[in-house]
Amino acid sequence: MEQVIIPIIASGYYWHLPFLILVISLVYSATRHDDWRIISIEAYRWGMRMLSFLGMIGIFLYLVTLIP
């Protein structure tokens, strides 16, 4: 049986991404608010937005690699 390697696991540098997303969303939200409750909600929202945006690009690129 042929083994399929998912690109995101094969390339180690993708594992550095969560830290970047965490820091950007936290710092960006904290520069917009002083209330910790709002900061955490905003950070979660921005983290999800960035993750889904990058995820869509990742899926698109993965689909492109499937084209023969």
Partner: peptide
């Protein structure tokens, strides 16, 4: 990838400097 991280850290600090100067940018 490393230099991209360092540049992003610097750019994020511009927002932090603004936060210290004028307070948080709240809509």
């Amino acid at each position: 990838l490393g230099w991209v991280y360092t540049v992003i850290a610097g750019v994020l600090n511009i927002m932090v400097i603004y936060d210290a100067l004028m307070g948080p940018v709240m809509l």
